[in-house]
């Protein structure tokens, strides 16, 4: 059976197996989802109460949107690796499947979770926060898509690193902040442009930075993961 199939086909099957395992596990345990949803709901509630009836400028609201997304991601996107270490199943994965397939599966899972998180945050933010208006929808949608991918890619490799550490909870946001800073600054700028009604071409520079960031993070992660994962 296995000898006839190419290594590439087996690799894809293994990566999908990691993704589907994490997804089914998440649906049964609600381990990361509960943390993410609770964080988003409570944070938006706090923003709502602190603003009261007063509106804030589009620049401030754009920044606050990504603050919510960043900290919610910090509370949930590390779980995929931390759970493996806490339960002792990391070695089971190491024994059975190549490290590249593990990383690809975990990245896919965090992309799905990150996309869900961003979508939930944006919907709740748009519904409840007064003054949050998007005038150039195309810029906003591309920013949200690229921002989610960048956030998930960086979070995945950082989660793999901190899963081996003793102080996982504290280390994750501390280590993530400097790595995610270029991404956060760019998505905040792009979101502000969308709120201001800037033409799409004006945000091209931001999108180039975001795409470069994603390519660099995924390439470096793929090269480093084997060293992080094995010992």
């Amino acid at each position: 059976m296995s000898a006839r199939e190419s290594v590439a086909a087996r690799w894809i099957r293994a990566a999908l197996a990691v993704f589907l395992k994490d997804w089914r596990s998440e649906l049964r345990t609600r381990y990361a989802m509960s943390a993410l949803v609770m964080f988003v709901v409570t944070t938006i509630s706090i923003i709502l109460f602190s603003l009261g009836g007063e509106g804030a400028s589009p620049e401030v609201l754009a920044g606050m949107l990504w603050v919510v997304i960043f900290f919610a991601a910090m509370s949930g996107l590390s779980r995929t690796f931390v759970m493996e270490e806490e339960r002792g199943t990391g070695m089971t994965l190491q024994l059975m499947t190549p490290s590249g397939a593990v990383f690809a599966g975990k990245l896919l899972f965090n992309l799905a979770l990150g996309a869900g998180l961003t979508l939930l945050t944006v919907v709740l933010y748009a519904l409840f926060i007064n003054g949050f208006v998007v005038r150039t929808l195309s810029i906003f949608l591309v920013t949200i898509a690229l921002g989610s991918i960048g956030l998930a890619a960086a979070s995945t490799i950082i989660a793999a690193i901190i899963a081996r550490a003793n102080t996982k909870g504290t280390l994750y946001p501390v280590l993530s902040f400097p790595i995610l800073l270029p991404l956060l600054m760019t998505v905040i700028n792009a979101t502000r442009l969308a709120a201001d009604g800037a033409p799409f071409s004006e945000a091209a520079g931001e999108f180039q930075v975001l795409i470069s960031y994603i390519v660099v993070v995924i390439t470096v992660s793929t090269m480093l993961f084997d060293y992080i994962w094995k010992d």
């Binding site: 059976m1 099957r13 293994a14 999908l16 197996a17 395992k21 596990s25 345990t29 070695m91």
Partner: peptide, 23 residues
């Protein structure tokens, strides 16, 4: 020290192991 996935059944663990091995 080699652990199985507690939230899955015995058969699911076996099927998962096969997929992780690319089979």
């Amino acid at each position: 020290y080699l652990q199985v996935y507690d939230e899955f059944s015995a058969m699911e663990n076996l099927m998962l192991a096969a997929s992780l091995r690319g089979e």
